[in-house]
């Protein structure tokens, strides 16, 4: 579990290169560092639901990223707020 305010990094993983998958972590945020805003609850893992497999409930977080780190042309203090499952996050 991660706490609000904690710094996290989105795993820089690309399972779509390996075969059919269904992933709810946008490509542009992989490998990026953000901050946990809040825990949103546990939800069945969509990566399994998409294939009608039994889906374990996983923690979902709202994570904030600074836009400037992702797209340099952006206004640096503008933000992105994204729902990301805990299994996609790591401590940097």
């Amino acid at each position: 579990m991660f706490a609000a305010g904690e710094t996290v990094r989105v795993k820089n993983e690309w399972p779509e290169a390996l075969g059919p998958v269904h992933i709810r972590t946008p490509h542009y945020v992989r490998g990026e560092v953000g901050e946990i805003v809040r825990y949103l609850g546990d939800f069945p893992n969509p990566e399994d639901l998409a294939f009608a497999r039994p889906a374990e409930r996983r923690p979902l977080y709202h994570v904030r990223f600074l836009k400037g780190a992702i797209w340099p042309e952006a206004k640096p203090d503008d933000e992105l707020l994204i729902e990301i499952f805990g299994h996609w996050l790591e401590r940097p």
Binding site: P26, H27, Y28, R30, W71
Partner: peptide
Amino acid sequence: DKEAQRAHHDLGGA
């Protein structure tokens, strides 16, 4: 490089 790896429906910033 990230954009080169995106799936085609994953449109953010494309």
